[in-house]
Simulated scan of single mutants.
Amino acid sequence: MSEALQDRSAVTGEDSREYLTFTLGEEEYGIDILNVQEIRGYDAVTKIANAPDFIKGVINMRGVIVPIIDMRLKFQLGTVEYNQFTVVIILNLSGRVIGMVVDGVSDVVALREEQIRPAPEFGAVLDTAYIDGLATLEERMVIVVDIEKLMTSGDMGLVDQIRADPAQTGS
């Protein structure tokens, strides 16, 4: 499926970058395509004892244990419903493989730096450190996320603990 997305991607100039866009609830997000390893359907996961709700568990992907993060739960977007559009985006972040569950994948888009506007400041109420900015594509707004900053933030540190202690998976 990821090959099909790459085939559809626009030809980019030197001053633009490609982003994979995906949906969570009513919102559309974009992440740098270079962090995406593959896209796969949502499958059952092995639960992890005492993990926060947003960490669904782990999967064994060709011999690699991959933690699975549900982004709707992470962003506190309400009830999660898994359907035929629910996918897992497998990310490769600084040599670590992490899966994130999203409602659906939209497209691959090319954005120039000037198309991305800075995110508004919300002070201490909302942590926007992982938001690179907002881009407008035709009639839609895309929240551009620095996925490496998000996945390596303090509250995601549990990912390293899970990978370090496979005994917790019960396998």
Rank of each mutant, 00 (worst) to 15 (best):
T136I: 14
V36N: 02
D155N: 10
E81W: 09
F54Y: 09
R140E: 15
A110K: 04
V66R: 00
D127T: 03
T152F: 05
V88F: 05
I69W: 04
D146I: 06
Q37I: 06
Y42N: 01
E114T: 13
S106R: 14
V45N: 02
M71R: 08
G41P: 01
E138Y: 14
I143N: 14
T152N: 11
F85C: 15
L158M: 15
V36A: 07
V125R: 14
I147G: 02
A51V: 13
I147H: 03
A119M: 12
V109K: 03
R72P: 04
V144A: 07
F85P: 11
G123A: 11
E113T: 14
R96W: 08
V145N: 01
K149F: 05
A167Y: 12
A124I: 15
L137V: 15
I162V: 14
D155F: 01
E38A: 11
T169C: 04
G95V: 03
D32W: 04
I98T: 03
P120G: 01
E27F: 12
I55A: 01
Q76T: 14
K74C: 08
Q161G: 08
D53L: 07
E114L: 15
F75I: 10
Q168F: 06
L126C: 09
G170N: 06
Q161I: 11
I98R: 00
V88P: 00
I55L: 13
V125Q: 15
V58Q: 00
E138P: 14
L158C: 09
F85R: 13
Y130N: 02
D146M: 08
I33F: 09
R62A: 13
V159F: 05
Q168V: 11
V102P: 01
V45I: 07
M141W: 09
N92I: 11
D32A: 05
K149Q: 10
S106L: 10
I89R: 01
A135N: 04
V159G: 02
T169M: 11
A110E: 07
T46F: 09
A129M: 10
V36H: 00
G95L: 03
V101H: 00
M100Q: 01
F122T: 03
Q84N: 08
E113K: 15
G57L: 00
R72W: 09
V66I: 03
P67D: 06
P166K: 12
A164Q: 12
V64R: 10
V144W: 06
R40K: 07
V145E: 02
M156I: 03
M141F: 12
E139F: 14
N83A: 13
V145D: 01
D146E: 08
I39W: 06
V105L: 12
L77Y: 10
L137N: 12
M141Y: 12
V108N: 02
G95I: 09
A51W: 06
V125A: 15
R40Y: 04
R40I: 04
L134P: 06
V45T: 06
Q84E: 13
I33P: 01
E27L: 14
R62Q: 15
A110S: 15
Y29L: 11
I69L: 11
E38P: 05
G99C: 07
R140N: 15
I48Y: 05
N60A: 09
I68N: 02
V101G: 00
E27S: 12
G133I: 00
G57A: 03
L34I: 11
D32Y: 02
G123N: 14
L126K: 10
R96K: 13
V97T: 14
Y29W: 06
V64F: 07
L158N: 10
R112Y: 15
V45H: 00
V87G: 01
D53E: 08
